[in-house]
Write a protein that binds this DNA or RNA. Structure first.
Length: 479
RNA sequence: CGGGGUGUAGCGCAGUUGGUAGCGCGCAUGGUUUGGGACCAUGAUGCCGCAGGUUCAAGUCCUGUCACUCCGACCA
């Protein structure tokens, strides 16, 4: 099949040009279509199904931890946005404004939400009077708009889908606990559902969210060894509450400002899935979120009994709760093999005349391309086992990439060399001064990704200035 | 917002010194095929990104503009 490669070869090799490979996969796997507006894309059924799976799992996790969904308006009056100083300054450069209603000039500009802190605050101010009204643990699924200058599918859109949790609590401890609980949920989700190992930690002052007291993050390593911030969780203290004048009467009959958190994960994570697991054949989706977990391919489907056997197999899989599909189009089997590999379907089952005779089918793993003959008896059970293996293997592979490409540096030069020759995450000690963070950005071309919760004392001195170090920080080139 | 690249059929591209648009894939119809991107026949599809200009004549030359894309700066 040498001449049969034409379409496959339209994907740029992953290690030849990673950026090109990425955009090839994103379009060829039918995830998105570009739209007329820069940075706004059409999420096609396959991408949206993936997002829905992500949504279902996360939403369930949120509900189990006592959160309720709400929906806030997509418009924010300028005066409301401006109430918290750091917050506006952080977002102002990328806010999209509405200035006209029909042909009438508006008396006040209206901002299209880049995030909804201000809306939640304004609402909380109205509904919270007493300690009995607390906590409120709200979440919303919505889209937000940030007028980015450069955009890339999933990684940086001008409009993107996400969820933003916003909670408000009577005490510091409770709010802090919430902040960490949600980070743990994201980490659990990434590792156990998306097969993406994470580094958990705190953002530096420079990298934290505009208006937050503390920002926590999970950082993932992509196949090209760059970092992707996959979700964040923020502790706001009472800063927003004070700016928005949210007060409640506590048990001791005094007026107090409550404490808030927010946390979010976006469709950006889909970019993360692609860049963590994909290979030269295209996408590779983790079984737990793959829109189609098993693709049944009939071989010589016009022959006696083949399509019936394929249908029966499909039904059996569906009945056992698997997301399975079959492709009965008149494309050649080889075309179908390549097509569903491109789309990252975790497992393919081939069933043809020979298999039917032997009461079996041929399973082909997307992760290893390994072919295994499976008995049709108990096929649902063996498929589930295989999917579990694939899920685990994908995590292990990603973990190996993370571990094998995490390095230690004791000087700026060493860090720069590692970044330039190998890429990856570099652990190094830091004195906590912004000037050193900026210098590392300038000289080693990295940004601080996080101060990991799991600290190691690599040395006593800051990698940059040599003064006493306060933390070990993970540095990397980031998306 | 700075630097590079690209805009011609759905996609990928060709189009010479300016002369009125082509190839491959895909698509449609019919037939033969089917265990790694099958084949034959027939057919449809274009405001050459957009706006000006030069010219008897512009896909081609000039000016402007817009979009996409990559690399930086900024951000999820």
């Amino acid at each position: 099949m040498t001449q049969g490669k034409k379409d496959v070869e339209q994907i740029t090799g992953r290690d030849i040009d990673f950026a090109k490979w990425y955009t090839d996969v994103v379009t060829k796997a039918e995830l998105i279509d570009y739209s007329q507006i820069k940075g706004c894309v059409v999420l096609r059924p396959y991408a949206y199904a993936l997002w829905e799976n992500i949504q279902k799992i996360l939403d369930d996790m949120f509900k189990k931890t006592g959160h309720e969904n709400v929906y806030m308006p997509m418009f924010i009056p300028e005066s409301l946005l401006q109430k918290e100083k750091d917050h506006v300054e952080g977002f102002a450069p990328e806010v999209a404004w509405v200035t006209l209603g029909g042909s009438e000039e508006l008396t006040e500009r209206i901002c299209v939400r880049p995030t909804s802190e201000t809306l939640f605050c304004d609402h909380y101010k109205n509904i919270i009077k007493s300690w009995r009204d607390l906590p409120k643990k709200y979440n919303q699924w919505c889209s937000v708009v940030r007028w980015e200058k450069t955009t890339r599918p999933f990684l940086r859109h001008r409009e993107f889908l996400w969820q933003e949790g916003h909670t408000i609590h009577a005490t510091v401890d409770e709010a802090r606990e919430e902040t960490h609980r949600m980070l743990d949920i994201y980490a659990d989700f990434c590792e156990n559902y998306l097969a993406m190992p994470v580094v958990k930690g705190q953002k530096t002052e420079k990298e934290k969210f505009a208006g937050a007291e503390e920002t926590y993050t999970i950082e993932c390593m992509m196949h090209d060894r760059k970092a992707l911030q996959s979700a964040t969780s923020h502790y706001f203290g009472d800063g927003f509450a004070k700016a928005f004048d949210i007060r409640f009467t506590d048990k001791d009959n005094t007026l107090k400002n409550p404490f808030q958190t927010s946390w979010g994960m976006s469709t950006r994570i889909i970019g993360g899935i692609i860049m963590t697991h994909g290979d030269d054949s295209g996408l590779k989706l983790p079984p737990k979120v793959a829109p189609v977990q098993v693709m049944v391919i009939p071989i010589a489907q016009h022959k006696e009994g083949v399509s019936e056997a394929a249908d029966a197999l499909l039904e059996k899989l569906k009945l056992s709760g698997l997301r399975a599909k079959t492709d009965v189009s008149d494309q050649s089997p080889g075309w179908k093999f390549a097509e569903y590999e491109m789309k990252g379907v975790p497992l393919r089952l081939e069933i043809g005349p020979k298999d039917i005779q032997n009461n079996q089918c041929i399973a082909v793993r997307r992760d290893t391309k390994e072919k295994i003959a499976l008995s049709l008896t108990d096929i649902d059970k063996s498929v589930k086992e295989l999917l579990d293996k694939i899920q685990k293997n994908m995590f292990e592979e990603a973990k190996a990439n993370l571990d094998n490409n995490t390095f230690v540096a004791y000087s700026v030069e060493e860090m720069r060399d590692i970044i330039q020759t190998k890429g990856g995450f570099v652990k190094a000690m830091w004195c906590k001064d912004l000037s050193c963070e900026l210098e590392l950005k300038e000289k080693a071309l990295v940004s601080s990704r996080c101060i990991p919760f799991v600290q190691e004392k690599l040395s006593d001195c800051c990698v940059c200035c040599g003064k006493p170090a306060k933390h070990m920080v993970v540095w990397a080139v980031a998306y």
